[in-house]
Simulated scan of single mutants.
Amino acid sequence: METKIYTAQELSAAAAQLRAGELVAFPTETVYGLGADATNTAAVKKVYQAKGRPSDNPLIVHVADVETVTQYAATLTPTVKKLMDQFWPGPLTIILKLKPQALAEVVTGGLSTAAFRNPRQPLTNALIKAAGVPLVGPSANTSGKPSPTTAAHVYHDLHGKIAGILDAGPTEVGVESTVLDMSAKTPTILRPGAVTRADLLPLLGEVLEQQPLVGKTEIPKAPGMKYTHYSPAAAVQIVDDDQQWTPATAWIATQSDPVGVLATEQQINMRKWPKNAHVISLGTDINTASQRLFAGLRQFDLQPEIKHILVTAFPRTGLGDAYMNRLEKAAGQKHFISL
């Protein structure tokens, strides 16, 4: 199969592919998603095949408006409607109870709930409207690898496996959406993202934060709760603070192979790096770091001679919570420890 790169001017052709049951990756403000008609069971099954993703992992349903959600969700409470008014379109995914048999098991993982999102990316909203159906949209990458933030990342992983990619350039946020479970007794964040607990508290009053990894026989309510995610081939270690970069730099110099480094501009400029350090800037703050994290990991993944990657940590406040959530999964919770 030839994978076509669609421009904004070719949106109608991309929508036609989706209506025909094919897979088309699309941009959002967070990462690129792998789109398929959420009402077409055969098309959704192709998503799992293309990604190499276990089929018991539920998929997020992307919609262009709230009205579409009402066709599938059991009810939209006043609080849920307020959430949608305030945060949609945007990087907030909301888990809701479904009407009986409203969506196929292949979409929900057999659960009585589903996750809905209305992306902020205008081209994607136009694509959903043109397709005339809601779209599933897991990250458009090989399962377990860093999520794609450009069309080129998608092409690298999935060319020949999907019909097309709608290209809108690099994504804005760089980490996946916040997943908020509104089917629980107390609203619960299952995956942190750009919409933070502090953002949600004024509206909800109480918000729990739980990102547990479920067992092998359990069905996760949201993506990222069961399997290894965001991992390049090289071993990733987290460097906890500016001081820790001093022994980390010394350790790099002792290595015979090149070592990948993802650090802030300040951290990069304040020291002399060994010749075998391959350094990529994460920019100046948590916003730029989140935008560049996955792209940096992917760039090093293209260099098989790099066996180790050191990445700077950020405080767990605001967007830093989402950044650290992804980084810790990429690193398998491993932090650099000086000897």
Rank of each mutant, 00 (worst) to 15 (best):
K272I: 10
V207F: 10
L11P: 07
W273Y: 02
A50T: 00
K329E: 08
V214A: 04
E10G: 00
T68D: 13
L59W: 01
L208H: 13
K275T: 12
L18M: 05
G283C: 09
V261N: 06
A20T: 03
G90E: 05
N57Y: 14
F294P: 11
A253L: 08
S231Q: 15
N125S: 10
N325T: 02
Y72A: 09
E29T: 04
M84G: 09
W273T: 14
F294H: 14
K275L: 13
E206W: 01
A289F: 00
K161M: 00
H335I: 13
E10V: 08
G318F: 05
V154K: 01
N125Y: 02
D85R: 03
E305C: 04
V63S: 11
Y227I: 07
A222E: 02
A13N: 10
S231W: 00
A330G: 00
E105T: 14
K82F: 02
E2H: 14
V136D: 10
M225S: 14
V24L: 10
P148D: 05
I128M: 06
Q299D: 09
A104N: 15
A126V: 00
D37N: 15
N141R: 10
F300P: 10
A74T: 06
P247G: 02
K97C: 08
K185S: 13
A194L: 12
I337A: 15
G318R: 11
Q210P: 01
L18F: 08
L166Q: 03
P247N: 05
T108W: 01
V259Y: 13
A43N: 00
A16I: 01
G160L: 07
A198D: 14
G260I: 12
G90N: 04
V69I: 15
V133A: 06
P122M: 10
D56A: 04
I95K: 06
F300C: 05
L200E: 08
S338L: 03
V195N: 08
G160M: 01
A25M: 10
S143Y: 12
I94A: 11
A248S: 08
A263G: 01
T75E: 15
K145D: 02
A140Q: 11
G320R: 07
P223N: 04
V61G: 05
R53T: 08
I60D: 02
V107G: 13
F294Y: 15
E10F: 09
A73C: 00
A114Q: 11
I337H: 12
G90P: 12
T188W: 01
A104G: 14
P91K: 07
Q244W: 03
A25Q: 01
V175L: 13
V236M: 09
T3D: 10
G332Q: 06
N141Q: 05
A248C: 12
E2L: 14
G90Y: 00
L297H: 07
